[in-house]
């Protein structure tokens, strides 16, 4: 299974990747992007087939909400990929906005491997 992590913090991308491994998910490859635009470039590139996307909310150039909208409005190859937000933005209005844009799950920082299992388990093979 291939996972795309979209976060402007390289440290956070490492921590999310470590969390996925600690949650015992069978991950074949983790792809990384530093903002929503880079995430779209990965998805639309030659090596862009992924099974799950984890995205931060606040990022420069293209934020997580705009990124979700672009993925859901994208080609049939990418517009059904499950997307979970991994962010400190856990307020009700933010969750509703992300859901309306097409998010499939929400993981609030700080998260634990068990929280990742609970939210992402249904998407993992």
């Amino acid at each position: 299974m291939r996972v795309l992590i979209v976060d402007d913090s390289s440290v956070m991308r490492k921590i999310v990747a470590r969390g996925l491994r600690q949650a015992d998910f069978q991950i074949d490859e983790i792809l990384e992007a530093g903002n929503g635009q880079e995430g779209l470039d990965v998805l639309n590139g030659p090596n862009g087939k992924v099974d799950l996307i984890l995205s931060d909310w606040n990022m420069p150039i293209m934020d997580g909400l705009t990124f979700i909208k672009n993925v859901r409005g994208g080609s049939p190859d990418i517009n059904k990929i499950p997307i979970a937000m991994v962010t400190t933005e856990g307020g009700e209005s933010k969750v509703e906005a992300a859901d309306a844009a097409g998010a499939n799950g929400h993981i609030k920082k700080p998260f634990t491997p068990d929280m990742l299992k609970e939210v992402l388990g249904k998407f993992m093979k």
Binding site: S9, I15, T88, G90, G91, E92, K108, K109, P110
Partner: peptide, 23 residues
């Protein structure tokens, strides 16, 4: 970035625990 994110996570944990004051 890492130290900032550490602060962010602690603030996020506090934010969650203060939800009764509103979003």
């Amino acid at each position: 970035d890492g130290f900032g994110e550490l602060g962010n996570m602690i603030a996020g944990g506090l934010q969650t625990r203060l939800e009764r004051f509103g979003e």
